[in-house]
Design a protein around this nucleic acid. Sequence first.
DNA 1: ATTACATATGCGATATTTCACATATGTAAA
DNA 2: TTTACATATGTGAAATATCGCATATGTAAT
Lengths: 111, 111
Amino acid sequence: MNPCTFFKCLADDTRLKSLLLIAKTGEACVCDLMEALELDQPKTSRHLAQLRKCGILLDERRGKWVFYRLHPELPPWARNVIVEAAENNSLYFSDALNKLMASQSSTLNCC
Amino acid sequence: MNPCTFFKCLADDTRLKSLLLIAKTGEACVCDLMEALELDQPKTSRHLAQLRKCGILLDERRGKWVFYRLHPELPPWARNVIVEAAENNSLYFSDALNKLMASQSSTLNCC
DNA sequence: ATTACATATGCGATATTTCACATATGTAAA
DNA sequence: TTTACATATGTGAAATATCGCATATGTAAT
């Protein structure tokens, strides 16, 4: 994991918020993320794909849905960076986090 | 310190290596950094200026030279990110670090 | 005041990233 | 097997970042 490549992955609002949301909640599917972040589907998917290709996220398909979580083999220092960023910038993504947790706990939710 | 802005600052080879070198050595002047990184002067100065304007680095002039160090008011989480990256990616900037330490300890050095 | 050296910045050219739209793929229910 | 839904990706346009060169500013010695 080249550190410059790693930081490039965090250097975008969509990707960073997606990562912080996933770090906080453990995992999330694409449809919940796009609603929480108020983004269209291709944009959400593209950024998640970039994080997956860099080895930061791991995807798992369950039926129609694809869930993303932090890659278990992510180097500890890199995981710490994400977790520390999440713990110290709650205001940056609290709106999205509230929406995401509402979706995830709702029985009306798609997945 | 918006976290996305912060990570954008780390998402470039010149800036990231400069930061890791400064984190390791405490401080460095522009001329030593440009030699350690084998860059021209305007490029080195430009990237340092960006880090200064974002509040990551603090500059201090001493005679003809300008020394940069991590800004003392940098939020602890952000400082930790830089320090952790430095501690866990030595191979990424070891060449530059060796050159920088050689310059800084040499009596032949300009500053 | 002039010169030499260290650092900073204006600016157009180039490279890289991101976006928006269309479309493709994958899954499951009817 | 048709349909609906979820996700992924091809592609060119737009936005953004970086570079290279020239030049400006700041400091100290002569």
